[in-house]
Design a protein around this nucleic acid. Structure first.
Lengths: 221, 221
DNA sequence: ATTTATTTTTAGATCTGTCTAAATTTATTT
DNA sequence: AAATAAATTTAGACAGATCTAAAAATAAAT
């Protein structure tokens, strides 16, 4: 279990996010994601290659090695557990947790993280609905779909709103639907394609087809 | 509210601890405390002086400025709040919390720390019995005395054990007295100078003069 | 298949934090 | 008070992480 610098961890995390399940990542794409310069990326890629965290041939892009992925999942685990802690215990709102977790995630004491996990009750998803890797690095894949497609009684988390105009935000605000809100669809009505949804322990409410089409959710599956 | 590097913070914290209420700190003493070299200390002192965090004339030692003390108290606040969190919420033992808190203390988001403080119920002392500065940097002064001197009914925290031999540790273990244990003296008996103490909500127990003489405690006053 | 444009890498510089070795200042001894 | 010892500072070097500007490799366009 080696230790990596904050900078190295930020590169690893960004590569993990950019490469998806198969692809390779380009120097420019990574420089852009990290708001740094391509020359700095090349320098770091040499270092991470020497540490066997990624596969890299000059000019050919790069992707994480097995070990690199393992490290990335560790960082993501720490990040998401802290996000959960901040939202659930310290009552931060969903849009504040990310920035703070970016700092906390670099404290890499395994016992701390495993005890935090236990304290939080082994949560499966963070406040944005993204899955939290377990202590051995296993992670569930996330389904992201439109609320109109969500199976009945499947608990999901609001992850995105298509149309960000103020009329829709006003309505969402009124219905207490925010990014990070947990909900499930209780019933659908064929007549106007409206649906009844339940948010936490609040009484179920009815939302229109038009609104549902703009809400995207994530759930484990 | 400027931000300081982990390294700068470690120097500031060490100076605060070494200088006590009045004195100045020497280059060697600080190098020794930080397990670094005197030359490195001199370099850093120049930097911290330029940032107006301390008073420093070459060869004359240094002490924190008002601003430097303010920064030091912020770091100590973060450190002790995390220690409290680790002990109270994550069930770390008293001797494990320090090391982890050394890392967490450098995450310097004010809102995080103030919300953590609130979540923990605004604790006044950390698991070692040291006082926690409040959000505006106020700190209570700690009295450290032998258990034989502790006023009746004054709640205090075990901070030290004079004789670390195994017979005394066996006895302390049996009585569930550890560093960090909260206790108070209920009654003293003149005959053999034994005393009845209460630990948390456990039934009061009797301890001998010899044992009490080896236990040192801290309390706010 | 050249030429042009884009992407990526190299070369050389800077900043932070650290070090060793030498020089300097202060403290202590004789 | 001069000599010696101890503490402190300076000078110069190095590693990590970044940058700019120039060179090299790859991709796209004519």
């Amino acid at each position: 279990m080696l230790n990596y610098s904050t900078s190295e961890e930020n590169y690893i995390k960004a590569i993990y996010r950019l490469q998806g399940s198969d692809g390779t990542v380009s120097t420019n794409a990574l420089a852009n994601a990290l708001r740094t310069k391509p020359a700095s990326v090349t320098d770091m890629m040499k270092k991470l290659k020497a540490k066997k965290l990624l596969h890299y041939q000059p000019y050919q892009g790069f992707r994480l090695s097995q070990e690199g992925s393992r490290v990335a999942l560790g960082i993501i685990r720490r990040h998401r557990l802290w996000e959960f802690f901040l939202a659930e215990k310290l009552r931060f709102s969903w849009d504040e947790v990310h920035e703070v977790a970016e700092e906390l995630e670099h404290v890499s004491n395994k016992k701390l993280i495993d005890k935090l996990d236990e304290f939080l009750g082994f949560p499966r998803v963070d406040p944005h609905g993204d899955p939290i890797p377990d202590a051995s690095g296993r992670i569930e894949i996330n389904k992201r779909i439109c609320l109109t497609e969500l199976p009945l009684l499947q608990v999901a988390i609001v992850s995105n709103v298509k149309d960000q105009s103020s009329p829709i935000l006003e309505l969402l605000e009124h219905m207490k639907i925010r990014i990070g809100t947990k909900l499930e669809v209780k019933k659908r009505f064929g007549f106007d394609e409206s649906m009844e949804i339940k948010i936490g322990r609040l009484p179920a409410v009815l939302i229109s087809k038009q609104l549902a089409e703009n809400i995207f959710v994530k759930y484990e599956g």
